[in-house]
Amino acid sequence: MVALGSDHGGYDLKQEVIGYLKEKGIAFKDFGCMGKESCDYPEYGRAAAEAVAGGECDMGIVICTTGIGISIVANKVKGVRCALCADTVSARLTREHNDANMLAMGAGIIGKNLALGIVETFLNTPFSGEEKHARRVKAIE
């Protein structure tokens, strides 16, 4: 299951991600926000991150205008490795090398088509399991 979280700046892009997840039959839980009214991203980023860290969800996707603030919040939760990605290469490499369990995106930075490509790449790329990467992930923890 994929945890989702956004603020008002990421709401529209989150709706596009929800459409993609539904189309692919991927289960998700939306931790908010639930509209375009101004709100504070830490509440929703933290809720999604806690669901991933606690095992309720396997992965998470969080979105704000830049992706920066919400990724910082997610990374404050022990057990979360959230990567801010604006391209598919970064999305692939953060899964292969860092075993990232959360993806952050900036709705004001990337468009829908690129965002959905990033989501697809992130969700479908496994951790490489290479010893050097496993060692580094363990050091992060």
Rank of each mutant, 00 (worst) to 15 (best):
residue 119 V to M: 05
residue 59 M to L: 15
residue 13 L to Y: 10
residue 45 G to R: 06
residue 17 V to N: 05
residue 132 K to G: 01
residue 81 R to K: 13
residue 136 R to Q: 10
residue 120 E to R: 09
residue 94 T to C: 11
residue 74 A to F: 00
residue 22 K to N: 14
residue 45 G to L: 02
residue 78 K to P: 04
residue 85 C to M: 09
residue 92 R to A: 08
residue 30 D to F: 00
residue 97 H to P: 01
residue 51 A to E: 09
residue 77 V to C: 02
residue 60 G to T: 09
residue 129 G to R: 04
residue 89 V to A: 14
residue 26 I to D: 11
residue 114 L to A: 05
residue 139 A to F: 04
residue 138 K to G: 03
residue 112 K to H: 08
residue 22 K to L: 14
residue 59 M to W: 06
residue 42 P to T: 12
residue 20 Y to T: 07
residue 35 G to Y: 03
residue 99 D to F: 03
residue 33 C to E: 01
residue 19 G to R: 12
residue 117 G to F: 02
residue 131 E to I: 12
residue 123 L to S: 02
residue 94 T to Q: 06
residue 14 K to C: 00
residue 106 G to T: 13
residue 56 E to W: 02
residue 79 G to E: 13
residue 114 L to R: 14
residue 47 A to V: 01
residue 33 C to T: 15
residue 134 A to K: 13
residue 67 G to Y: 11
residue 90 S to T: 15
residue 93 L to F: 05
residue 132 K to V: 13
residue 5 G to W: 09
residue 4 L to I: 05
residue 19 G to C: 03
residue 130 E to P: 01
residue 23 E to T: 12
residue 16 E to H: 14
residue 100 A to F: 02
residue 106 G to W: 06
residue 75 N to T: 08
residue 58 D to A: 14
residue 123 L to K: 08
residue 66 T to D: 13
residue 24 K to G: 05
residue 11 Y to L: 05
residue 30 D to S: 06
residue 117 G to W: 09
residue 85 C to P: 03
residue 71 S to C: 04
residue 71 S to A: 13
residue 128 S to L: 01
residue 62 V to S: 01
residue 106 G to S: 11
residue 32 G to T: 06
residue 124 N to S: 15
residue 108 G to D: 02
